[in-house]
Design a protein around this nucleic acid. Structure first.
Lengths: 262, 262
DNA sequence: CGTTAGCTTGAATGCTTTCAATTATTGTGG
DNA sequence: CCACAATAATTGAAAGCATTCAAGCTAACG
């Protein structure tokens, strides 16, 4: 597995820019990972009005049935979308990492069909939707980048359908960890040999369509194989290749490096 | 269950318009079900250049890895998106009915991450992507309608994740049939007491993350309960309410009548 | 230092799959 | 128009993966 981490010099450069551009720089960075944006476009995004909000694990930023008036952008921590079954069963239908925008769905759809919640302690930038609408209306490249982002989330959703529908529990878990590895790698601010996954086994279960008990057994199994480590209560990805082999992981659905062919 | 079918007079009016506007009128009708479009916008859509293509069941209109140069619109018959697991297992990740556009993903993502195929004998209008891009660039309302369409497909995908991840086989099947009932109802050209579902049990299995054998057992069960009928080899939805009760179906995720609040 | 949330484990149950074989329907060619 | 081939549906029995239930354990937090 290639590390994909930028050389130190490039990283310093990025850091400098991030400082200049403020909190939303992380969103810009994410958009740049799959779309082209001029300096002026980037500055316009950075200049979007926004407020900062801190949230505790499990806290809802948007509830099913609500109509959003802001677009939340994850600055730090993880967030997720969830849907509830009538019997109380929960399904997590998307996972959002720092830099991810929780889309502008609400501009177009009047009722949220799911909850959005903080997974860990998390920090969000809340961008008023009208400001975002104006920006995308004025700047086609930004509109394109945002749409690309939405389409990539859809693509990930399709892969999750395949994962839950067709893979057994061990491969399912391994596949999710591979995806997280790559997505965390993309936003890592420093080179790191392995990544910590801040999900409880119950959350993993709700994500994978399994029970916590069975997730535990699969986690143990991956641990025995040396693919993952478990410092205290946490879970770290140690050996991507093993996980990729178990789940036949292929990252094409993440559409990274989408820029090349524009 | 409300029939949702338009009164005859309104239907005749629609028929007339459809005649005037040509093959793409069905797409316009679909977009109008969730978005507002001026007469001029509608005419512009109808005037999109396109060619007609007929396809046999199972035939691919786009393959994983391909880059599309046209946006296919379903005119008649059903189509679907599928992904393959490495072990040969297939997962159908979306179902497309007449009037559905198979999105403009390819404008923004360079590589298709899944196959698009005809489910039944089907007819497509192929709209060149550049023409579509031009239209959405010039007409914000059209762009909005198309984006809304994409977001609704995403919403359906999330519901499918919940369906496959958290419901048992019987509820899963019942839920799918409810969704199909509503979606077919929306595009029905004439009032009809029940709808025919043109899916084989194998296709249902690939859709629901089950095996054909088990789908058969669930189908049998729904039949015994009187919820569905099976004229010859086909499957018809007889009693929506039973199916809705079994699966606790709620149609909000389909975002019909989205217009009201724009 | 106790409380609590999260993790772990075993045993029994059960839903779904797998395997294997048969029947029904559709379509095709003679 | 009938026979045959091919596709789809059906059924039973056995096996297996995952769930459920129940209890005990461990790390983190106040």
């Amino acid at each position: 597995m290639p590390s994909g981490v930028a050389p130190l010099s490039r990283w310093k450069e990025q850091q400098r820019k991030r400082m200049e551009l403020g909190p939303l720089s992380i969103l810009i960075r994410k958009l740049l990972s799959h779309s082209l944006l001029s300096t002026s476009d980037q500055e316009a995004i950075a200049a979007l009005p926004h407020s900062i909000r801190h949230m505790a694990p499990g806290e809802a930023i948007l509830r099913e049935g609500d109509r959003a008036i802001v677009c939340p952008v994850v600055l730090s921590g993880f967030a997720f979308r969830q849907k509830m079954a009538s019997d109380g069963g929960r399904q997590i239908v998307a996972l959002k990492l720092p830099g991810d925008a929780l889309d502008l769905q609400s501009i177009y759809l009047h009722q949220a069909d799911h909850d959005i919640r903080a997974l860990t302690v998390a920090e969000f930038a809340l961008v008023p939707l009208p400001a975002l609408e104006r920006l995308t209306a004025e700047r086609p490249a930004v509109a394109r980048a945002v749409l690309t982002d939405i389409l990539i989330e859809s693509s990930i959703g399709r892969e999750w359908l395949l994962n839950i529908g067709r893979r057994n529990a061990l491969a399912r878990l391994a596949h999710l960890l591979c995806e997280l590895h790559d997505r965390m790698n993309d936003i890592a601010t420093e080179a790191s040999a392995h990544f910590e996954v801040p999900l409880t086994q119950e959350q993993l279960a709700d994500l994978l369509g399994l029970t916590p008990v069975h997730v535990n057994r699969m986690v143990r199994q991956l641990e025995k194989m040396g693919a993952i480590g478990r410092p205290s209560r946490s879970l770290t990805i140690l050996h991507f290749d093993s996980l990729a082999k178990i789940s036949n992981f292929s990252a094409t659905y993440l559409h990274r490096n989408n820029i090349s062919g524009v």
